[in-house]
Design a protein around this nucleic acid. Structure first.
Lengths: 235, 235
DNA sequence: ATGTCGCTTATTGTAGACAGTAGTCGCAGA
DNA sequence: TCTGCGACTACTGTCTACAATAAGCGACAT
């Protein structure tokens, strides 16, 4: 997701960076259950580092919403309620809309290269029925699409919320399957969205985006009872 | 800004929390110049703590955008370019709009108590010509207004970007003066905005908000040359 | 039998010290 | 005089160790 080399410079990644990425990946992979206690000592053993860099990494993940910390009572993997899911989806959608309002029509055609490449990857993955790759490419596509606004803070906020959406999806098998029932169609919708943006038609792009959102996670995951059973309540 | 007691529980604040607040306050107060190097050793002496909690605090401030860190080359106070200011203002405005779209008309009247109280404080401060208090109250008012959406992630994102706007303002004397040329009028505009929200008229509130923004920081700080001279370029 | 007090243990919060790297200054050679 | 190399300095990155607090458990008193 985040490149190992942060923004240009070429440096050996610090243990904090490595620990952050590793932990985030593990949580997204479901290796730690929601609400599970994250004890520093255990994690240092697992990662082979000492506590200070681990603690800094956990601070970062706390800011990103992956873990919650109570002073002197340790940290736990974030537990997502239905309410949290609603928050994530609405905020993500709003940030995407803002990106279009600011960035469409595009001034500098260069910014279109990234989403173009990503959508081609998506189509590749769809043909090969590579579901995992499609998720990755889709992630990059949306991030690149927001990038056309050339708005660093917006992109960062978007990436943060998008990661949290991955967390939702990783915990919701029903949605994960339904979301990708037709891989080709899925990729095609993204292609259409990109074409609207390329055409510089903001309204069309926004409409496409709205339809896009409707068909995706938000509407598939309808029944509230299901949410509660899958995500549980916050302690 | 942030209450010393984090969200309900009553615990002695950790040194990390104290250091974070203290450093943020110092940066906002202009005690550290933009681009100034923040050396860990010096800061530990000043704050009377050791490096681990300080480093965790700096991680937090880095996430919040107050400082930038280059690996093995230390941290510096964030330098804001005109582009940064544009980002902050557009994002802040968009988040406020989203809050209204989600939260107006209000479902639970209780959420109106906080903005009501804040606007009264503003009017108090305006009458007493307490400019500092007015800034504080205005900060709380807008935060409380976003709070009506009852959307935790939105509120957090908003507070973060609002803090950064404070950083802009603290570095721009011209704007700071112009912004508050007529204290009473300033408070009155906020009262009007609140009334639109209370009436449950989303469109009116959004329109009011747009006008509100127009008259504030964004439009006052017009000349781009001035920005550059005041904020400098990013290194 | 139940509630409370105190101890024990595990875990977090903090401190201080060590290691490694980047920047800087000086010197030598061309 | 200028350029390149090398040592020095100062800082960040990391580790180990200590202190303090909270939860768990048992014993005692009521």
């Amino acid at each position: 997701m985040t490149s190992p080399v942060e923004s240009g410079g070429l440096h050996a990644p610090s243990l904090v960076q490595l620990a952050t990425d590793s932990l985030r990946k593990a949580i997204l992979a479901g290796e730690y259950a929601p609400g599970e206690r994250l004890q520093e000592e255990r994690l240092t053993e697992r990662l082979g580092i000492s506590r200070p860099p681990l603690r800094e990494a956990m601070r970062v993940l706390e800011n990103e919403g992956f873990i919650v910390t109570q002073p002197r009572r340790g940290s736990r993997v974030a537990t997502l309620t239905a309410e949290d899911v609603r928050e994530i989806l609405t905020l993500r959608s709003a940030l995407e809309r803002l990106a279009f309002e600011l960035g469409v029509p595009v001034r500098d055609p260069k910014v279109l290269e990234a989403p173009r490449q990503a959508v081609e990857e998506m189509e590749d993955c769809a043909r090969r029925e590579d579901r995992g790759g499609l998720v990755q490419a889709g992630y990059r596509f949306h991030l690149a699409l927001v990038g056309i606004a050339e708005h660093r803070r917006l992109s960062e906020a978007y990436e943060s919320i998008q990661r949290q959406q991955l967390l939702c999806m990783s915990r919701n098998l029903v949605v994960r399957e339904a979301y990708y029932e037709d891989l080709e169609h899925h990729a095609a919708r993204h292609r259409t969205l990109l074409e609207s943006v390329e055409a510089g038609d903001r309204d069309a792009a926004l409409a496409e985006l709205a339809a896009h959102g409707e068909q995706s996670f938000a509407s598939v995951a309808l029944p509230p009872e299901l949410y509660r059973s899958q995500f549980g309540k916050r302690d």
